[in-house]
Simulated scan of single mutants.
Amino acid sequence: MSMGSEFTHLDATGAARMVDVSQKNVTTRSAVATGFVRLSEACVKALRAGDVPKGDALAVARIAGIMAAKRTPDLVPLCHPIALHGVEVTLDVRDDGVAIAATVRTADRTGVEMEALTSVTVAALSLIDMVKAIDPAAVITDVRVEEKTGGKTGRWHR
């Protein structure tokens, strides 16, 4: 078996390539990714009270996550540029930090797992940027795909 047939993103010589998806069927596809930003008690208190000096940290993170999903092919070298039909980003303030979830949807030839992961990660980075004066020790953790639907493999759930 040649290297090109073992690894879909490598050609027969081993060079990186973007996979040709033009012959794949267009299907409705979605992906859900989650992550967590671990924060200090003081930072959680400031988020809940709306007392973050830079402003509405949760709103900024939500918008950043949506924008990031749309820019994923610019950041991940072999990711296909596809039309996104929906991006939802939720942030849930908990006692030890903020849980972030992104749901991304399309009707296209390839999935949106990378867009969902990028969305969560950039939302987390933006949140840290907004609260770093309060909590310089904030940590992003547990970024992962929870579920995907569509395509020939159908539904996958963690």
Score class of each variant (00 low, 15 high):
residue 67 M to Y: 01
residue 91 L to C: 12
residue 86 G to V: 05
residue 41 E to Q: 14
residue 52 V to D: 12
residue 76 V to M: 15
residue 71 R to D: 12
residue 69 A to K: 01
residue 73 P to A: 01
residue 68 A to F: 02
residue 68 A to K: 06
residue 68 A to L: 04
residue 73 P to E: 05
residue 75 L to Y: 08
residue 44 V to K: 11
residue 44 V to C: 07
residue 71 R to A: 10
residue 75 L to H: 06
residue 82 I to Q: 13
residue 83 A to F: 07
residue 62 R to D: 06
residue 51 D to C: 05
residue 72 T to P: 10
residue 61 A to N: 04
residue 94 R to H: 04
residue 73 P to D: 08
residue 97 G to M: 05
residue 63 I to H: 02
residue 44 V to G: 14
residue 96 D to K: 10
residue 52 V to T: 11
residue 50 G to S: 08
residue 79 C to K: 01
residue 85 H to E: 15
residue 66 I to V: 15
residue 58 L to T: 07
residue 57 A to M: 03
residue 87 V to C: 14
residue 71 R to Y: 10
residue 58 L to M: 02
residue 75 L to N: 01
residue 66 I to H: 02
residue 76 V to R: 00
residue 81 P to M: 09
residue 70 K to Q: 12
residue 74 D to G: 04
residue 88 E to Y: 02
residue 91 L to G: 10
residue 72 T to N: 10
residue 87 V to A: 03
residue 51 D to Q: 15
residue 93 V to C: 09
residue 66 I to M: 14
residue 43 C to H: 05
residue 87 V to K: 03
residue 55 G to I: 10
residue 41 E to P: 07
residue 91 L to K: 12
residue 49 A to M: 09
residue 58 L to Q: 02
residue 65 G to V: 01
residue 45 K to L: 15
residue 88 E to F: 01
residue 45 K to R: 15
residue 46 A to S: 15
residue 61 A to S: 03
residue 49 A to I: 02
residue 62 R to W: 08
residue 61 A to F: 03
residue 43 C to G: 00
residue 97 G to I: 06
residue 74 D to F: 00
residue 64 A to M: 00
residue 59 A to P: 08
residue 59 A to L: 14
residue 96 D to E: 14
residue 75 L to A: 06
residue 49 A to E: 15
residue 42 A to K: 15
residue 50 G to T: 00
residue 77 P to Y: 06
residue 65 G to M: 00
residue 90 T to Q: 13
residue 90 T to V: 11
residue 84 L to M: 03
residue 74 D to K: 03
residue 48 R to I: 04
residue 46 A to Q: 05
residue 84 L to R: 01
residue 83 A to D: 10
residue 95 D to F: 09
residue 85 H to D: 14
residue 94 R to K: 13
residue 86 G to M: 10
residue 73 P to W: 03
